[in-house]
Design a protein around this nucleic acid. Structure first.
Length: 575
DNA sequence: GCCGTTTTCGGCCCGACTGTTTTCAGTCG
């Protein structure tokens, strides 16, 4: 099987950890981490690029040495350099870096002085009070490490964007009540619409003497204050989320918001550029020597570097900076561009409401059209429809379409793709539908080759319109099934099918890299809520956030088309 | 180990907080 980009990135990160513990040149360590990040976020598979003879040293952060190492991993499945490094270190040593308070320096010290080489041994040393003897290890640090060991599994968790956003909004509301507060923004990965977040970052501007910090650290929901300063504090909430709050005066608000929105890689790249031009960017502003050039707004940062404003969702150092310099940034899709929703369920299968209620809710959102896509018979757990019940539903949709003005209901279904690639309903009923949403709901564990073949076979059916949640993943619950996404997208492009970006926050499937791939291949994406109730229609914004992370513009998304345009397009692909 | 409008050497983002120290190293984001 082919080596994945993730596996290569993990190997490079492991090298970085080990070199870090060895006290190697920190810039060499950083080079491995930078390369890992580049590989992880690159839309195409390194394995394929190597096969094609592509020169990997063209990629940012990858030079001759690392290109050779990638080629070795891809062709042999191993990396001798990493194996050599691992042989000279205890196998669990890197795990110690995960404990708060332990960085490479202290891990090295613990290993040299006490031969601590795993979390298990660290626990024993803590119990035996051996750590007191290590220079630089005082009672506070030892307590922090002891707590970290107890919690380290728990704190590894990444939260889904919706969970984190809900907590962040609630926090913002509370903190706005503090004295002297002018503005509060949620920054960090929530603002960049990442699908999962590790912690919540918030930025506030406040006048001197504000009690916002005191309020923040003494909220009843705070289970632990990790650190507390006058401009920056960090806590953990009882729901397990860590929150950072940064407070500045309004002159620095933009610079601080920018700094804490990240990503780190994006910030580093900008600061480097500033430095090359004799300027300096920090959380307080943009400076030339002692002269302050700006920092009140985020826009100052980009303006002073002579580039266009980059939307938060794009700030990942994945090529956006070059685009901003040449004024060729994409005009990212916005919520107002969405004209309809092409995936939702009703009481006919596992939805909570009638067709009419869903239609009215969609109309209230200003949509021109929706598709009713109840499950089909194979999905018995969701009361999937057989041909007879689906025909009944189609008649009801006809009646509602006659009755309701200003919104059009498409007849559709979320049809199961069976193991052999056939669809779960007979052809005559499939042909009676306006569009057909198809999905894999079982047999997730097929080999990549078989799963890909299954989907490609299904796409050959003339009624196939949209591939729903194309990888089947459930964030934090179920891994994506193995599928060759490039092949699927190329087939979709050729066949005139569309790829769904399912906006449910536990799916967000396609992911951001897939969205960029779809744009590259030229296959339109459909952002759908997969709503099971009227309230679910509001999940659209998570899908839009993911689409923006994937650089999608209005033109790249099918359901930004007007009703007339969409009908025309459907007629073209389904004559 | 990477990179180059100062290109094959000599840099590599920048600052807050903590704990342990008498001026700072380590960690973290």
């Amino acid at each position: 099987m082919r080596v994945t980009n993730r596996q290569i990135a993990e190997m490079f990160n492991e090298i970085a950890d080990l070199l870090d513990i060895d006290g190697e040149n920190p810039f060499r360590v950083r080079a491995y981490r930078n390369a890992a990040r580049t590989i992880l976020s690159y839309p195409r598979s390194m394995a394929e690029l190597v096969e094609e003879g592509f020169d990997l040293s063209q990629l940012r952060g990858i030079g001759k040495e690392l290109a050779k190492k990638i080629a070795e991993i891809v062709t042999t499945g191993r990396l001798r350099y990493l194996e050599r490094l691992k042989r000279s270190h205890p196998p669990q040593l890197e795990a110690l870096l995960k404990i708060p308070g332990l960085g490479p320096g202290r891990v090295r010290l613990l290993h040299e002085m006490l031969h601590i080489n795993s979390i298990k041994y660290l626990e024993q040393a803590l119990e035996n009070g051996k750590l007191d003897k290590v220079p630089g290890f005082g009672p506070k640090l030892i307590e922090k490490i002891a707590n970290g060991v107890k919690r380290h599994r728990y704190e590894e968790k990444r939260f889904r964007i919706d969970e984190a956003e809900e907590t962040a909004m609630w926090l913002k509301e509370r903190l706005l009540k503090a004295s002297g507060v002018q503005e509060i923004s949620v920054a960090g990965s929530i603002r960049r619409c990442k699908e999962t977040v590790h912690d919540i970052d918030m930025v506030a501007s406040a006048t001197e003497g504000s009690d916002i910090m005191a309020r923040f650290t003494s909220l009843p929901e705070v289970s632990r204050v990790i650190m507390q300063g006058t401009t920056r504090s960090s806590v953990r909430l009882s729901n397990g989320m860590a929150v950072d709050l940064r407070v500045v005066d309004d002159r620095s608000y933009g610079a601080t918001l920018h700094h804490f929105t990240g990503s780190k890689a994006h910030n580093i790249a900008l600061r480097k550029m500033a430095k090359e031009r004799g300027m300096k960017i920090n959380e307080y502003g943009i400076f030339h020597g002692d002269e302050r050039l700006g920092g009140e707004t985020e826009g100052d940062v980009y303006r002073l570097l002579e580039m266009d404003y980059i939307q938060p969702e794009m700030r990942e150092n994945r090529g956006e900076i070059a685009k901003a310099q040449t004024h060729t940034l994409p005009h990212l899709i916005e919520p107002k561009d969405i004209r309809g929703d092409l995936h939702m369920h009703t009481l006919y299968s596992d939805g909570m409401e009638t067709i009419e209620t869903m239609a009215k809710a969609a109309q209230a959102k200003g949509y021109e059209y929706i598709a009713i896509t109840d499950h089909t018979k194979h999905l018995t757990i969701a009361h999937g429809l057989d041909e007879k019940r689906l025909r009944e539903q189609l008649e009801e949709i006809d009646r509602i379409n006659e009755k309701m003005d200003g919104i059009t209901l498409f007849k559709s279904a979320e049809v199961d793709i069976l193991e052999d690639g056939s669809l779960d309903l007979p052809d005559d009923i499939l042909n009676a539908l306006d569009l057909v949403v198809c999905a894999v709901h079982f047999k997730f564990d097929l080999s990549k080759q078989k799963q890909t073949a299954r989907i490609l076979k299904a796409m050959e059916h003339p009624a196939f319109t949209i591939l729903a949640h194309p990888t089947g993943r459930l964030i934090n619950l179920r891994e994506p099934y193995a599928v060759d996404m490039e092949k699927v997208m190329e087939a979709a492009k050729e066949r005139g099918c569309f790829m769904e970006l399912n906006a449910q926050p536990d799916r967000l499937d396609l992911n951001d890299r897939h969205c960029r791939l779809a744009k590259e291949v030229g296959v339109p994406v459909v952002i759908s809520t997969d709503a099971h109730s009227p309230k679910d229609l509001n999940l659209m914004h998570y899908g839009i956030g993911q689409a923006r992370r994937g650089w999608l513009e209005k033109e790249d998304v099918l359901n930004t088309r007007s009703l007339a345009e969409l009908q025309k397009l459907l007629k073209q692909i389904r004559p």
